[in-house]
Design a binder for these strands. Structure first.
Lengths: 190, 190
DNA sequence: AATCTAATTAGATTATTATCTAATAAGGGG
DNA sequence: CCCCTTATTAGATAATAATCTAATTAGATT
């Protein structure tokens, strides 16, 4: 983590309009015109701010027909926000990317020899690794009815409801009228 | 916590020079010329930045003869840094000031009827409340030899070494050649 | 009082940036 | 293929702010 990146994060976020956008997107994704309307600004202005927020990775987007929906990446936001308290620490360099080794280690700790999840990790970082592993068995672009999703999760752990909820909460998938679909990888919080 | 204050925090901290100052002060207090020297900038420039950092409460100062030492308030820094992840939450409004009621509640939980500290709180916020209570029996401006400090702490808890260390760590007091002295209240992290 | 040191203020320069209007691009649907 | 909607780019304007030099203030010591 280089200093300039941290400077840029705070510079970007140190703007009333952009903080208001972040506040809005915490409630859920919105498209450009909707944001412009809610903030009383013009679409080009929003475009300008969204570009900056995307540059620091706290916003990702998903297209639906003509409309682009902007999502807040809360995990990135929180990692970047706390970096300032770790200025100079060694830890600073490692926290932003989870290495493959680390993932393997967590997976081997939480799954038994039959591939069953022994318990749901309490720590967010580890929980995301486990969720990523489970969701990999599903197909991108395909639409699944709820029972299919439950069935898939039950292959790993009996508490399918909790895990299904986590999938939604951390933007691994989207639910629409009882059907579930994987989100594009950029929306995953890992 | 109003939005403008948060904007101002990030705007202030979103500057390379100011982040470098924060990084330097994490190692310990420094005076203006020292900072200017280490960063290769002129004293007026440092003065300018220090003023801004004081405005957001992240730096406090202490005068010694002609020289002013600037200290980093790490607790404020970390509270402000994490505020962005709580945008819109109710919690945002409460976290910044510890109310007297809350202090009383913590004190009655951690001290027994004879005024003895039952245990050292693990949670930082509570530990600071307890430390503040214990240090109140000492006199500002007076210089104490180490045994006097130990004796004072032992009236509350047997583990005087740990508590004495916490006093230093959280800037309640300063040690100089085996003598201890209370810091001015503005340096306390509570 | 005179002097030394450290800090701050004043004023100027230069660079950055938030916002707008107008124009253009991109993608879908009739 | 033309029209509609949404998003982006271009260009202009006005405001903010980082840094410097020079001048001033503040405290302490001789």
């Amino acid at each position: 983590m280089q200093l300039d990146r941290l400077v840029n994060f705070h510079k970007t976020v140190g703007d009333k309009t952009r903080l208001r956008i972040i506040g809005l997107l915490k409630e859920g994704p919105l498209h450009g015109q909707a944001i412009a309307g809610k903030l009383g600004l013009t679409p080009p202005t929003i475009s300008h701010h969204i570009t900056k927020l995307k540059e620091i990775d706290v916003i990702v987007q998903r297209r639906d027909k003509n409309t682009i929906y902007y999502h807040l990446n809360e995990r990135k936001l929180s990692l970047l926000a706390s970096a300032i308290t770790k200025l100079g620490d060694e830890e600073m360099n490692t926290e932003f990317q989870v290495s493959d080794e680390e993932k393997l280690k967590v997976l081997s700790n939480f799954f038994d020899d039959n591939g069953q999840l022994k318990s749901i990790p309490a720590q967010l970082k580890k929980r995301l690794i486990v969720l990523e592993h489970i969701i990999k068995g599903l197909e991108p672009g395909k639409s699944y009815p709820e029972p299919k999703i439950n069935e898939h999760i039950k292959k790993y752990h009996e508490d399918f409801a909790t895990i299904r909820r986590e999938f939604i909460m951390h933007h691994f998938m989207t639910r629409d009228k009882g059907y579930y679909e994987l989100n594009p990888r950029e929306l995953w919080l890992i």
